[in-house]
């Protein structure tokens, strides 16, 4: 019986490993190999040419903005969903994940239909000389839409797990509401806020489907890295596409790795 279990564990472990290897590791390594196949000089040239480089910088900038907005909004929403009881809360809670279930292109299309020049909102904005669609704000909106669930979903369980007696103790000991929030509640939420934000950031970096629709895709102004990569794939320049991908992958990996370190530290404590 024990023998049997060991066999089972081994087989499960090796299946998981093979799956991970085949589905994740090999394709990603392939991108690194392809990206660096022309040597370092070619790699640097592919990345540093102005159109590619601008697109990477722009993507990072917009992803940071989207992440900051989502972190603030997501924290508040998670708080509202866990702490308050209001009609429609459950419905709202299940709606949060919808951006994951929707093809992102549809999200982009909705932004276009809502804010495009023919919509009443779009024409009102145009009347006030505010351009959103095909400009950078639309890209940020698309990124926010796509990464919306991350922060909420990482904070929620932490808030739910929070022991009410800790809070009560804080109040009993005479702490103010804000003192209690910042000293007791927020430290418990913090790993969720940071982890969620970093996941959202790396997802925003790579967003394509929604962004390609709502952005003008003009180099230096509204061309994001993912669209630039797509352009390289389509104009049969796989090594150029892979080079920019390598940059994004490495950045995302560093971000995710630091998330891992952060949560590990929390577990150790």
């Amino acid at each position: 019986m024990i023998q049997n279990k060991r066999w089972l564990r081994r087989s499960v472990q090796s299946t998981v490993l093979v799956y991970f290897l085949l589905l994740i590791l090999v394709p990603i390594l392939g991108i690194y190999v392809q990206g660096l196949s022309g040597g370092w000089a070619h790699f640097a040239e592919s990345i540093l040419q102005p159109i590619a480089w601008d697109s990477v910088l722009l993507t990072i900038k917009l992803a940071v903005i989207a992440t900051l907005i989502n972190t603030a909004l997501g924290t508040m929403l998670a708080w509202a969903l866990v702490r308050y009881r209001f009609p429609g809360r459950r419905l709202l809670n299940s709606l949060v994940d919808l951006p994951f279930a929707l093809p992102t292109a549809v999200g982009g299309l909705m932004i276009l239909l809502l804010l495009g020049p023919q919509s009443w909102l779009g024409s009102w904005l145009a009347g006030h000389n505010i351009e959103i669609v095909y400009q950078q704000p639309a890209i940020v909106l698309a990124m926010i839409f796509v990464t919306f669930p991350f922060v909420i979903r990482t904070i929620q369980p932490l808030l739910e797990e929070l022991d009410p007696s800790e809070e009560e103790a804080s109040y009993t000991l005479g702490a103010t509401r804000s003192g209690t929030f910042w000293r007791v509640i927020f430290p418990a939420m913090r790993p969720g806020v940071i982890g969620g934000a970093m996941l959202a950031f790396s997802r925003a970096l790579a967003e394509f489907g929604a962004v390609v629709l709502v952005a003008g895709n003009i180099p230096g102004k509204t061309l994001t890295a993912s669209v630039q990569i797509y352009g390289n794939v389509e104009s049969s320049n796989p090594s150029g596409a892979a080079a920019v991908s390598v940059l994004l992958l490495t950045l995302s990996f560093l971000v995710l790795w630091s998330v891992n370190l952060l949560t590990e530290r929390k577990d150790a404590r």
């Binding site: 239909l113 495009g116 020049p117 023919q118 669609v133 095909y134 952005a215 003008g216 003009i218």
Partner: peptide, 20 residues
């Protein structure tokens, strides 16, 4: 003067249709 470089001719027509 280009407002948007869409990914295909079809996408370009859609953008135009939406009023841009």
């Amino acid at each position: 003067n280009v407002k948007a470089l869409d990914k295909s001719g079809r996408a370009s027509m859609t953008t135009f249709e939406n009023g841009t």
